[in-house]
Amino acid sequence: MKPLFTDLTSLLPIAAVDGPSGFSLIWDFLAIGGFVMLFIVLCSMAAVTVMISAWLRLRDHLVLPASVAAHLRALPGYAAKGDIKPLQEFLERDQSLLARLGALAISGTFSSRQECVETITARAKEDLHHLERGVSVLEVMVTVAPLLGLLGTTAGLVGMFSAFGSEAGPDTATIAKEIGVALRCTIAGLFVAVPSVLAHTYFVRRLDNIAVRLESILHETIQTFFAHFEVKHTHDVRTPEPERLR
């Protein structure tokens, strides 16, 4: 008597040959969907591209590394030693968003705390706007994909009702095909819209979280820097104006 697993293993190649592959099933699903399905596929490709690029941009080590935040919070220790240069060199070596803004905040190039806060705030808004690029595309896909699905559904219903008006009587094969077109377009549109709305919500919350943490860390850094370090600026000496000729 042969072992059971040997019999099951011998049946796997037969099942693989008899059953359709996953790629062929997907291709049949998309092909029957009609011309509208092409636009839905393009929307899905755009949504996936935006998701991947946004995820790569918003990783912690590129935006808010824990090591950079720890060094900025250790600014009083550098002040106690009277040497801030090691911290500045560390921030210059790091290429993250927090490191760039932190290096600017402790650069000592601002004459007042208010000037530093305004400049850092403007620069942070600009960098956050750069991080947001592409995320709005997901919001567009949330609206466009279901509308394209509805367009395909409407086209399928038009073809279905046209089959009822033929002189030879209703063509059941055509009716079934058009119903398949309508249902496939609806499913495909929702299949693109649902992940897009989930990804859009996630990235918007992620950006809000980054903005709040960035503001908190930089505000603390600026307050600590101006409390422990004195910023000195040399003013240009004005030459006396020549006397007017009378």
Rank of each mutant, 00 (worst) to 15 (best):
A105C: 10
E167V: 10
R57H: 05
I32G: 02
H200L: 07
L198R: 06
L198G: 05
T239D: 06
L12N: 02
H71A: 12
G180F: 05
L64I: 05
T109H: 11
P170F: 06
P20N: 09
A54L: 13
I26H: 01
Q88I: 11
G102P: 09
A188M: 03
A99T: 08
L75K: 03
S96K: 12
L64N: 01
F229Y: 15
I222F: 00
M141V: 15
G102Y: 12
T224Y: 03
A103Y: 07
G189H: 07
A66N: 00
L214H: 04
V197R: 05
R73D: 14
A31S: 09
L157W: 04
S53Q: 15
D60N: 14
V137E: 01
S96A: 08
S44Y: 04
F229W: 14
R57D: 02
R123D: 02
L30C: 15
A182V: 06
E132P: 08
T9E: 13
L104R: 14
H130D: 11
A46K: 03
V36E: 08
A79W: 10
L157E: 02
E118R: 15
A182Y: 00
M141A: 13
S162A: 13
A16D: 03
A74W: 00
K232V: 00
R59N: 06
L38F: 14
L245V: 13
G22N: 04
D236G: 04
